[in-house]
Each structure stands twice: as structure tokens, then as C-alpha cells.
Design a protein around this nucleic acid. Sequence first.
DNA 1: GCCGAACCGTAACGTACGGTACGGCCGCTG
DNA 2: CAGCGGCCGTACCGTACGTTACGGTTCGGC
Lengths: 224, 224
Amino acid sequence: MNQQSVDIEQMSARQRDVLDAVLALVREEHRAPTMTAVARAASCSKETLYKWFGDRDGLLTAMVQWQASRVRGLPLPSGSLDRAALIGSLTEFARNWLAVISGPTSVALNRLAIAEAGSSGADLGAIVLRNGPIAMARRLTPALEAGRSAGLLAFTDTDDAARVFFGLVVRDVQIRLLLGEAPALSEAAIARDASRAAHQFFALYGADEKRPATAGAKQSTETV
Amino acid sequence: MNQQSVDIEQMSARQRDVLDAVLALVREEHRAPTMTAVARAASCSKETLYKWFGDRDGLLTAMVQWQASRVRGLPLPSGSLDRAALIGSLTEFARNWLAVISGPTSVALNRLAIAEAGSSGADLGAIVLRNGPIAMARRLTPALEAGRSAGLLAFTDTDDAARVFFGLVVRDVQIRLLLGEAPALSEAAIARDASRAAHQFFALYGADEKRPATAGAKQSTETV
DNA sequence: GCCGAACCGTAACGTACGGTACGGCCGCTG
DNA sequence: CAGCGGCCGTACCGTACGTTACGGTTCGGC
């Protein structure tokens, strides 16, 4: 009932420390933390927690937004636009994305958001979604369209192409991690997968003269 | 503490009805059901629930296994092996898979398994994983290898190819659904996506004479 | 008809947890 | 120094829920 903005920007350092403690707690335990545990871990009183965040949902929401606020701001691929540079950008993008989603923080937060989806009032799912796949698509879009403008890529629906890229990069890694399988991708494996995904994406959507425009790839999927 | 097998095969019809009631409950509510709610919905006493399933975990485990036991047994792609038939098989496979994972039962069960991953003793995550992506890969494998034997497909690691197929089919649909976005894919959209995924998979791993062996697709895992 | 087993409905117990209240400590302001 | 607001630590309350126990009912076997 208290929906008081929870502005991440204007929060004291102490409050951010508390949120970091909550994040650490969520990361190491494998379920949503209790308010008592948060208070103990953050060395603050429950009364203060309720005064600052109003509610358990408010605390979790603030934590998710706090984490989201520092994921933003990765270097957009820019510069020259030959084929090699674009593949390099896509590879770097994929590498970064795989590293993020296989990290313990991402796994824990996605678990929490999925578990809480629909149960509590403020849905963390929407926030995580906005800062997960949707944010990735948004950051990927300019690179793809620049590639198309430069005649390197060929597609009609940018969003669709971005989602195929997502599929090529992530495959079943995320769902396996969320379901508890802990393969713990190595740095080398991530780099290899990223390169493979970028090359495969180029094989599908590259505007090569060799191939006649990828028979099944041009139609969109959005219906709603 | 009672780990008593929970053999789905040898259970009375009444017990299966109870498990169906639990499934319905999980599907309509958006969290793990309480024992009281299960007893009320299934018209049985809690004492019986504890006698039959020993524990809350036992009940949930039995429910997941019960659902898994009837997902099995889809028609394996067989018969003639020309290019069109293989694409048709892959398309049908993808269509079926998309229909399953976008269904309310799959979403609810995956949510439950992810939420309970690591918290309770018996991890549903492993069961869902075995009957989700892993089962799909297992069922897909013979079709892929048959295609390779027939000279239609070219890949080195079957498992890797299967996981790329998974990525092309699912993309970010599952994670979006789990996070609470409810786009409710239409039948037509699913069919379109399945066809697109099958064609894209063939574009990457098809042994066509037109294209010189898919520049990035042949280095499935060995390139550093 | 009688017995025991299985089962239903419900009450009761213990615990965990969200949320609130209170006393005490610290630093700031007048 | 007095007063006070912010915060910590802790005790407390109400509720939800897992688990157990108990009385009543049905049903198959003798």
C-alpha cells in the first residue's frame, strides 16, 4: 500500500549497503531472505527496514532495481563497420551476456523473481524482465540496424533478429542453471560459445552474396 | 526422511486423482499449494496425504513425476529421410515443444521447480530438468544422427547441435513466460516459429552443396 | 452381525515469519 | 548540558502452514 517511489538514485550510502547485504544473502542462500535475516546481515533493525522500504516487497523491489541500476552502461558497439568488426561486436556482446546470466547474482535474482511471480503484489518478474532480455534487445538493436544500414545484415524485423540472437547465445543454459544444474561455465567455454553464436547469427542473417536470403528467417513472430 | 520410492507406476487410481488435483491447483494458483488446500481440493484427508506421500516434498515430487510420466511417448520422427521429410520432422518437433513449454502446466511446474531449487530436500529441479531440456535432446538425437547418416546434416557434436536447435526454437520465450509475461502464443504463431526454427537449423547444419559448410557452424566446440 | 483396515473431516500443536512496539545509545542542535 | 531525532537490538503479536492426533464413517471378510 505504500508504493513510495523507491528511488534508487536518491538513497543514502547506508541504504545501498543494506541492499548489497540483501543481494549477498539472496546469492548465498537459495531462497528469498527473511526480514530478520536481512536485519542481522545488514546490522540494522527491522524497524529501520520497514521505515526505509515500507514493506518486504519494497525491500526486494529496491534490491532488484539497485542491482539493475549498475548493470546498465556497457559499451555500445560502435566505430567502423566492416564485417569483422561487426562479428567482433556481436561476439563481445554474447560473451558479456553469457557471463552475466551464468553469474550467481543473475541466477539468484531470476530465481527469486520467478518464484515471486504473481504471488506478491509488486512483481519482480517485470523488473527483471525489463533489465534482462528486453534490455539486451534494446542494446543490441542499434548494432543490428547499423549492420543492416551498412549492407552487412539482412532482416526485416529487428526485434525478431535480436531474439534469434538471444536463442543462439543462451540456448538452454539459463533454464538449466535456474533448475539447479551447476556446470559453472569456464571463461574459455563462454568465449567459444559467444564466437559460435555470432558466427551462426551471421550465417543466418548476413547479407552475403553467396546465400539467397535465408528461406525461413524473414517472417516475424509477434502476433499480439 | 521417508524416501519411499514414490513409484508412479504402481499407484491406485485414487492416488493419481489426488495428484491431478494437485496439478490443477498448482496450475491455477501461482504458488506451491498448501497441504490443506490439496486436501480440500482432492477431497481427502491430510492424514491420507501424509500416509501416501510421506511428506510435502514427497507429494510435490510425486506430482512432478506423474506429470512427467505422461509427457513421454511422442512419435519419433521416422520413415523416409529426404530433406523435406527431415525439415517436416524438425518443424513438428519444434511445434510440439513450443506448445508444451508455453502451456500453463509447464510454466507452473517450471516455476515451482525453480522456486524450490535448493530449498527443499528433494529437488524438483533435477526432475523437471530431466524431463525438460534433457528429454528433448534425447528424443531429438536419433533424428539428427539419422539425418547426418543420410548426408542431409553436417555436425560433429550431436548434443551441441541439439542445444542450438533448442535455442532457435525457444529463444527467450520460456524465460519471458516464467518471469510473468503472458503473451499466450497462438497456434499460428507457434507453427510459424517452429517452421522458422527448423529452416534456420537447416541453414546452419544442413549439408547443402550450395553453401561451403557453414563458416561458423562447424567449429562447434573446438575453436578457442 | 462383528472386526479391522482404510479413509474423511477437523481440531490441535509447534514453528517460522511478516510486521509492530519499546527501551536504550549516539550524534546533532540550541 | 538538555532535548531530540535516527537508529539498533530485542521482545512481542497475529497469522499461515506443516505435521500430528482423534473421532466418525464406510467397506470387505468371516
